[in-house]
Design a binder for these strands. Structure first.
Length: 426
RNA sequence: GGAGGAGUGUCGGAGUGGUCUAACGAAACAGUCUUGAAAACUGUCACCUGGGAAACCGGGUCGUGAGUUCGAAUCUCACCUCCUCCGCCA
């Protein structure tokens, strides 16, 4: 959500931003609704002022007739007021629905484009492995080594279901341990937070996943939702709070299971561990003061944390700046980090790093008192720290050996009993 | 699942139909005192919103929403959250 005053004063910016994001949004319709809102507010407030004034006089009135007349007048006023308030409710409904649809304005540096095909590479790191044979994909590798079972996965959990087995499961746990240790040792200002996945609707409205993303969310019979990311509960942790400026920026490393319906992606990545209904994610989340410069600096920090992590795992990756059409409603700018997938001879997304300015905190009502004594909405940012089991794809594929075994990344070995390989026949 | 109680500003907390303009306290900020700090004292101090250059003036907000009333923090209903007791389970 944006400030209506800002919207009114910058409607060209809003329109341009929506266009850059390839979103349809009619600013003029909002302005019109806001005009109505303002006009009606004026009428209603005028009547209320009259009512308040009478209310103040009434108790001390001695003249019975005069009092009776005033009461009659007030009854009439009340009827009119009720009619206007009814109208006001209708206008507000329209107004609020439109307000929830206003896209945040993308940063100047966001490249033009329609889809992820138009994202622009910022930099690449690491050596892509050279194979003397056609590299196998993770499905084949993992099934051969009995690290995963997709057939029974589908039988038990339905489409996109999976089991992780043996060292496959062990490596998932190893990665979790690794991430936690990595942050605890090197980024200790990111505090661990284990968050709920089963959340209320307001949390998803607040983070900007609703009202637009209804189809991609699982919903329970109690009208709760399964969140697709720990960001939702984490951001909501500070909903309706006034943060102490001294504590900013607040940095969290949040963990949760994640659930996504993946509606509309039925033909994409139907096999393997890439696109799952159920997975696990460590998410970096930051609140900072309302400053564009601070947001930008922390955005880069979130990105560099992940680069460090991937470098420790020795995975070749590149960073792309997402184009306007690939940005979410609230995002100002986004980097995706994509790790090399030898079997497909291309990069596959593993991390998504974005900042929102006050878009989320305004919806969630997360504020702090600034030095000038004014309440301000905080800024928010987030980035994946590590999502499993997706990253297993790239670990397995990049570290595969000709005999079908897998070399375990050095940093993970201590969490996997010290072994150097999975499935190496000595 | 059953019974009862509660939700007030940054925090604690008073207020049970009309000067509520929400008391009081804490925190915070400014000042006095002090070599400095603390303490003490003095002052400022809820938020959102409309108008205005400002002083100031208007409206709203007491968990959320609806209702009763000329008038609601206060009465009624529904919902949300928390607490206590009982039951059930671990």
């Amino acid at each position: 959500m944006l400030d209506i005053k800002f919207i009114r004063e910058n409607k060209e910016l809003i329109a341009e931003g929506a266009k850059k994001k390839h979103l349809k949004f009619d600013v003029e319709a909002l302005i019109k609704a806001d005009d109505e809102r303002k006009a009606l507010t004026l009428l209603v407030e005028e009547k209320r002022a009259k009512q308040n004034e009478a209310s103040k006089r009434l108790p001390s009135m001695k003249d019975a007739l005069e009092k009776k007349n005033l009461l009659e007048d007030m009854k009439l006023l009340k009827d009119e007021l009720q009619k206007e308030e009814e109208k006001m409710k209708e206008v507000m409904k329209v107004w609020q629905a439109l307000m929830l649809q206003v896209p945040n304005i993308p940063d100047m540096s966001v490249p033009e484009g329609d889809s992820d095909a138009d994202n622009v590479e910022v930099r690449a790191w690491g050596e892509k492995p050279n194979f003397t044979y056609r590299p196998k994909d993770h499905i084949e590798l993992m099934e051969k080594l009995d690290l995963a079972d997709f057939e029974i996965g589908a039988k038990v959990a339905g489409f996109r279901g999976y089991f992780l087995k043996n060292e496959g499961a062990l490596m998932e746990f190893a990665l979790w341990q690794f991430v936690m240790d990595f942050f605890r040792e090197k980024k200790s200002e990111y505090k661990l937070l284990f968050v709920p996945s089963l959340v209320r609707r307001e949390t998803l409205l607040g983070t900007g996943y609703l009202p637009q993303g209804e189809d991609d969310l699982y919903k329970t019979q109690d009208n709760d939702y399964l969140a697709g990311t720990a960001e939702v509960a984490t951001m909501s942790y500070n909903a309706d709070k006034v943060l102490d400026k001294k504590d900013l920026p607040i940095k969290k490393l949040a963990f949760s299971p994640c659930f996504r319906r993946e509606a509309g992606s039925y033909s994409k990545d139907v096999k393997g561990l890439y696109r799952l209904h159920e997975f696990y994610k460590f998410e970096q989340v930051i609140w900072c003061e309302a400053s564009h410069e601070k947001s930008v600096a922390l955005h880069e920090e979130l990105l560099s944390n992940v680069e460090e992590l991937l470098q420790a795992l020795n995975l070749p990756y590149h960073v792309v700046a997402n184009c306007g059409g690939d940005l979410g409603l609230g995002q100002v700018k986004k980097y995706d980090v994509e790790v090399w997938r030898p079997s497909q001879n291309k990069y596959g997304e593993t991390h998504s790093c974005s900042y929102f300015h006050d878009f989320q905190c305004r919806r969630l009502n997360t504020r702090y008192k600034d030095d000038d004594g004014k309440m301000k909405f905080a800024h928010s940012l987030n980035n994946t720290a590590l999502a499993t089991p997706r990253i297993l794809i790239q670990i397995v594929e990049n570290n595969q050996q000709e005999d079908g075994s897998i070399k375990i990344p050095e940093v993970l070995r201590k969490y996997m009993g010290g072994a150097e390989y999975i499935g190496k026949k000595s």
